[in-house]
Design a protein around this nucleic acid. Structure first.
Lengths: 361, 361
DNA sequence: GTTGGGCCTGCAATCGATTACATCGTCATC
DNA sequence: GATGACGATGTAATCGATTGCAGGCCCAAC
């Protein structure tokens, strides 16, 4: 069509003789000029095509193609007061436990047109920034927190902030606060674990716990004690071995187990890393799993299946955790102030039976 | 001081009777009003304090405190044409190999006032976005790519983009392109590995490789072959076992090794995951490491030290990789068009000797 | 007293989109 | 033929910062 060729030429001329930046990307104005409509119409066509006529839609689409137009997000963010991005806060970036959760978050966010910003608690703290600034300064529209161990001061600031409803905790949470959250069935998972060991004939069961103060540690430990008592098993205090979710703590726990004079025949560890450390240390001392003792973990991390022996564990669907968290948060970001909001999601866990647990001989 | 009390009252009144949003955060205007200066002066005070007088500086600081002012980054980004953030592109978010690198990147970025956006190649592709859009639409000022397996079309688009100088590859890279990069001494690491095994008395050494087409795989394999020949060792073709960096491939490689009639006494794996899978599979078949065969890996991931037996490996400092990448990229972003730019950094690796390798019996 | 320079500050344009409101044309209805 | 409703589009204000330019002040030098 002759008209559109003309337009192309017009456009090229402009970019050649325009500002110093020849490679300047084109703007709404450029598209409007080429399509011979106003910028308002172009904007409407792009964000809400239904309100413009069919012919305009075609001309704008053509003009967009000709000019190679890309929206400038800074401008849109400024005008709409939205950052179209979400901050994910981790206690520690280097911890691989979180990577699958991130994958889930990212998958859902990008599908909804949001970007994912990442920061770690320690770094934010070190840089002297306040966490709430991310929301206040229009860098992020909301926040997914994967760290239940936030500083109480920070928590208080967040809770009193007008942005509190756009903060969501995933995996971990903080008791006594009113933040939205996504959690796993920690109690049910723990009960399933204890019952699994019980069904295998074990009557003396130990528990290696997470770090003191951690909300998951307490939830799992309480559920463990409760279930063991419900089954009428004896539980000696030294069978609750303090750990901290890490490999190294698992090793120490194994030494503690070895030192017992009345050794439990099964051990439920609060994380897979603990269980792996536990088993590793045992095998250094010539104990064999599951022959001498059944050991199981919690989380079902990728490595669990490849471990020797393959680890029995309680599976958390980390991809689902991430996706659910993102979905809930975006819903909250978009919700009107008076809208109804889902406040907590509790995701199922499942027992994965492998070779690190076996029937009592 | 009476004056400043007055100002506080003025300010409060404004927020109470202002727009519908009572919780509206304050702007430069508000600060200017309270400090009784122009917005220009406030802006200058904040971004370039040296150019304003001492007394102004004090009054603005006071006004900032009173109003609780936080800069609006969307506005600044629009005006300065900078996003003050960097995109990190991973092949796969769920792969824990990258988490420490991310930690390094993030640490350096936040120190320089930049945010870190994360996306995975697969997702960007799936969402129909073009990678270069992140730079074009002012979402990110630059890009760190940790994926050497990008689609050739995408690579071409990136290379021809005016933004090409703000793209940097880390760990992996793409031969034949001119992107800046941060790499490790893959050749030197490989040589050190081979010589370590040689020094232990091994004369028949196998290599389990990474995935075909991967630039690290080829670099390490070529260096391996070269070094083995330099040492005058025999190298039978079946001693080069194809893998792909994963645990599962390590298991398969072990089966291949077992099936050999003339078994090498040492195996150099192109990744720690390969080595772990290899050892795991061997122990299922009643072979013992390092008694029956010495095995070593590459990367020195966190788990290597805790593995049974603790793994000999070639250590890459992933934190340093990340920090270097971030530093180089920001330098490029800030550099004037004619400035001199560092184009490639090669980081040292080091041999970490543990118990998975031993002297030939 | 005039001039010039340096220092500090203010005015106002600008970045590039969104959107409330006004306008215009068309068509059905009475 | 007048009226009103409706759909499509344009006008212009707006989001909140940055920055080129101009102006005011003060002091030194002539």
């Amino acid at each position: 069509m002759f008209l559109s060729i003309n337009n192309v030429i017009d456009y090229k001329a402009r970019t050649e003789f325009g500002d110093q930046t020849v490679t300047k990307t084109s703007t709404l104005q450029d598209v409007a000029r080429v399509a011979k409509v106003s910028t308002a119409t172009v904007s409407r066509t792009l964000s809400n095509p239904d309100v413009v006529s069919e012919s305009t839609r075609r001309r704008v689409a053509e003009a967009v193609k000709v000019t190679g137009y890309r929206i400038n997000r800074a401008a849109r963010n400024l005008r709409t007061r939205r950052a179209h991005s979400v901050l994910v806060l981790l206690p520690d970036l280097a911890n691989p436990f979180f990577s699958t959760i991130l994958e889930g978050i990212s998958r859902n966010l990008s599908q909804q047109g949001y970007s994912m910003l990442i920061a770690s608690t320690a770094q934010v703290h070190a840089s002297g920034e306040r966490l709430v600034d991310y929301l206040d300064d229009a860098r992020a529209d909301g926040m997914i927190v994967l760290d239940g161990g936030l500083d109480p001061d920070v928590v208080e600031t967040l809770e009193n902030s007008p942005q509190a409803k756009r903060i969501l905790f995933a995996c971990e949470w903080i008791d006594g606060t009113s933040f939205a959250s996504v959690r796993c069935q920690n109690r049910q998972g723990t009960r399933a674990a204890v019952n699994h060991l019980f069904d295998l004939g074990h009557r003396k069961i130990a528990h290696v716990t997470g770090p003191v103060g951690n909300v998951l540690m307490h939830t799992r430990k309480d559920a463990f004690v409760e279930e063991v008592q419900k089954l009428g098993l004896t539980l000696r205090p030294e069978w609750l071995i303090a750990g901290d979710f890490s490999l190294a703590a698992g090793c120490l726990a194994a030494q503690a187990w070895i030192a017992l004079d009345d050794r439990p025949t099964a051990v439920f560890c609060a994380s897979d890393q603990l269980a792996m450390g536990f088993i590793a240390e045992l095998s250094r001392h010539e104990f064999s799993v599951p022959k001498d003792v059944s050991v199981m973990g919690f989380d079902d991390i990728d490595l669990a299946e490849q471990f020797i022996p393959p680890l029995t564990s309680v599976r958390q669907d980390r991809l689902l955790i991430g996706e659910t968290a993102a979905k809930m948060l975006i819903a909250r970001i978009k919700a009107p102030d008076d809208g109804h909001l889902e406040h907590a999601a509790v995701l199922p866990v499942s027992l994965v039976t492998r070779e690190s647990t076996a029937a009592l001989q």
